[in-house]
Design a protein around this nucleic acid. Structure first.
Lengths: 346, 346
DNA sequence: GTTAGCACTCGAAACTGTTAAGTGCTAAAA
DNA sequence: TTTTAGCACTTAACAGTTTCGAGTGCTAAC
C-alpha cells in the first residue's frame, strides 16, 4: 500500500522525467512538490517506492526514473490528462479544413497531423469496414488481354486491380461477363458479394468460360484488398529521435516493419474498451518495440463502426499531455469523418 | 602533367580508400603497388599529387585520401570497371525472374535488387515516355457524383484518377460525354490527346455542359500524372549507413526529399551520353547531397526510349566494383524490359 | 633519382583527477 | 514515531595527461 505522499512523489517523478528526460533527484523534487518536506524525507520515501518496484536508478547514485511497473501504476491510477494547448487545437482544425473524396484521405491526413503535433510516429486506422456496402463494381477492359476491376464502397474507398484475361475468352464473352457481374453484384453488402461470388456467379459464367474459378479468384483478391483494414503512418522519421540510435539495425528493422504497412495491427492493437489506452514496450508482442510505448485512441463514427489512431513513441512520453491531446484529437477526427458520411450519405 | 608512377599511386589510393574507408599511408602502398619503390619515394610522389590538388590529408600526419578533384581525375582517366561477381549476377537473374503486368513493376523491382546488392540507395526510372501512345482511355461512373478516369498507355502503365462530376450534368449527358471522349481519343499518341483535349473536344462537349474547361482540366491532370516520369526507390534505409549520422536533421531532410518522390530528377539527372556517369556531391545542385555521389546508368530499349538507374551512396564508393556491377545490371534490365515489350507488343 | 634514417605530428585509447549530483545512513529534533 | 540535518560515499561526465602507433617531411648518402 502506498501513502498519499508516496503517490504524490511517484506522480511528480513520472511527470518530471517524461518532460525533461533526466532522472529526478530529491533536490529537484523538493522544489517541485506541492507539499513541503525535506529532501531527506523524500529520499526515504523514494527508497520505499523503489522497494515496491515502482522506481529505478540508472546507477547507484543517480536520481530515480520510473520502472515499467511505475509507469503502469501511474497510468492506471495517477495520470491526469492535461488540457490541450490552444495552439495545437488550432493546428488540428485548420489542418483538417479541406474537402475529401475518400475516408482514407481523412485518415491519412490524421496521421500526418498527429505526428507533426507530437514529433512521434502516428498510425491511423479508419472506421471498421465490417458492414461496408458495395456501391459500385466495374470491370473495364483496357486492352486485348487486360481488365481493370474497380470496386467502390460506401465509405468512398475505391480499389482497383488490373489482371490479365484468361486465354480462351473473346471480347464478346467478356462484355457479357461484365454485364452479368455488374447486374448481380452492385448494391449488395460486401459480405453478400463474397458469398455470391462463390456460389451463384460461377454457374452463370460457365456459359462463357470453361473455368470461371481463376477469374473469380482475382475478384476475391480485390475484395480482400478493399475490405482489408488500411493503416496510414505519419512521421516515420521521428523514430530516429526516439531510438537510442545505438542500434542502427534495430531502427532499420522497425522501419521496414512500418514500411511494409502490413503488421501494423500488432502495433496498434485491437479496439479497446477504454477510449484511450497505453501499452508499454514489454506488453507488446514484438521485441522491436521493447523500448517504445503506444498510446491508442478509439473513436466512434455512429453506425459506421470504430476507428483508431495510435501514437508510437518512447516509453518516457509525457503521457498526461499526450493523452489530453489524443482525447481532443480523436473527437475532432470522429467529427470530420461523421461529417464526411453526412455529406456523402449512404 | 602526371607521370605513370603518379597515376599508379593515385589509382591505388582511390582503390584502397574506397574499399577500406581508411586513409592510405606510404607503407600500405608499398605492399600493394605492383612496382617496387621505397616508401620514401612514394611519399615524395604523394606530395606532388597533393600539390596538384588530387590528394588530401585528414590531419597533418595522416595517410592520404582522394580529394574531390582526385576522384574526378580517377573517374575520368583511371577507373577500370571490375567484372561482376558471379553470385551477384545470379541474384540479379533470379530476382528478375518473374512475370510482370506493367513496366513499372519491373522498374520498381530493379531498384530493390540494385539496392540490396550494393547496400546503397537505388533510384530507377523507366524508359522515356515521350512518344507513348494512348491505348485505352476510360471514364467509369462510380456513383452519383464521382467518375474514375483510367488511362492506359502502350508501356502497360495504367493511371487512374477519381474526380467529382461538376454539378449540372445528369447521367444521360455523362454517358454521351464518355462516348465522345472514348471515340475521339483512344488510340492516339499522348501528345495528340493533349492537343485534342484543348481544341476539338471542348466544342463537342458544349452540347452537354456549359463550361467543359474544368472538366477537361481534370483529364489534363491525369495525363500529366501518367506522362510524368516516375521514379522508384529501393533501399532508402541504407542512407543511414552512409550518412555520417552526426546530423540527424540532414538525414531527415534527405529522406523526405526521397519520400516525396518528386524532385528525384535532380538526383538522377538527365540521360547522358555516356552509358555510365558519376557525379560527385559538389557537382550536384542540392546541398543535401554534398557528401554523396551518384552513379547513373543509362540503357536503351530499342524504339521505346532510354531508361536510367542510379545509385546514391557516399563519395567514397568502390567505384570500379559499382561501375562493373551497374554495367551488367543495366543490360539485364534493358533485356527484361525489351522482353516485356516483345510479349505485350505494341 | 632513389633510399634509409630520423625527428616530428597527430589521433586514438587508456588512464587520472576533479566536480557535481545524488544517495544511504545516523543521530538529533519535533 | 516521524522528520530533518548532516555527513560519508558513489558515480557519471568531463577535462587533462600519457602513451602508442601510424604516418609525414626532410636530409644526407647511395
Amino acid at each position: 500500500m502506498l501513502t498519499k505522499r508516496q503517490l504524490l512523489i511517484l506522480k511528480e517523478i513520472v511527470r518530471l522525467y517524461t518532460e525533461t528526460g533526466q532522472p529526478v533527484g530529491s533536490k529537484k523534487l523538493l522544489e517541485q512538490l506541492p507539499i513541503h518536506i525535506s529532501s531527506a524525507t523524500i529520499r526515504n520515501e523514494m527508497v520505499h517506492l523503489e522497494d515496491q518496484g515502482l522506481l529505478e536508478k540508472t546507477h547507484l547514485s543517480s536520481g530515480r526514473i520510473p520502472s515499467l511497473r511505475g509507469y503502469r501504476y501511474y497510468l492506471d491510477h495517477l495520470v491526469e490528462p492535461s488540457s490541450i494547448d490552444a495552439n495545437d487545437l488550432a493546428v488540428i482544425e485548420t489542418s483538417f479544413d479541406q474537402s475529401y473524396h475518400e475516408i482514407d484521405q481523412i485518415v491519412a491526413q490524421s496521421a500526418k497531423i498527429l505526428s507533426s503535433l507530437t514529433n512521434y510516429t502516428a498510425i491511423s486506422l479508419g472506421p471498421e469496414l465490417k458492414d461496408l456496402k458495395l456501391t459500385g463494381f466495374r470491370l473495364v477492359p483496357l486492352n486485348d488481354d487486360q481488365v481493370m476491376a474497380i470496386l467502390v464502397t460506401d465509405n468512398g474507398t475505391v480499389e482497383n486491380h488490373i489482371f490479365s484475361i484468361p486465354s480462351g475468352i473473346d471480347g464478346d464473352s467478356l462484355e457479357k461477363i461484365i454485364r452479368i457481374i455488374n447486374d448481380q453484384l452492385v448494391g449488395l453488402p460486401l459480405m453478400e458479394v463474397v458469398n455470391k461470388l462463390h456460389h451463384e456467379i460461377p454457374q452463370l459464367l460457365t456459359k462463357y468460360m470453361i473455368t470461371p474459378e481463376g477469374f473469380l479468384d482475382i475478384f476475391g483478391g480485390v475484395l480482400k484488398k478493399a475490405a482489408q483494414e488500411r493503416y496510414y503512418v505519419g512521421g516515420k522519421m521521428n523514430l530516429i529521435n526516439t531510438s537510442t540510435l545505438k542500434d542502427v539495425d534495430q531502427l532499420k528493422a522497425l522501419y521496414s516493419l512500418i514500411d511494409q504497412n502490413q503488421d501494423l495491427g500488432q502495433i496498434i492493437g485491437a479496439p479497446a474498451d477504454q477510449p484511450i489506452e497505453v501499452r508499454l514496450g514489454d506488453e507488446m508482442t514484438n521485441d522491436l518495440l521493447k523500448n517504445f510505448s503506444v498510446i491508442t485512441a478509439t473513436y466512434n463514427v455512429s453506425e459506421h463502426g470504430r476507428g483508431m489512431i495510435a501514437l508510437l513513441g518512447p516509453t518516457s512520453m509525457p503521457y498526461s499531455r499526450m493523452i489530453g491531446l489524443l482525447d481532443v484529437f480523436r473527437a475532432e477526427l470522429a467529427k470530420k469523418i461523421t461529417d464526411y458520411y453526412r455529406h456523402h450519405g449512404d
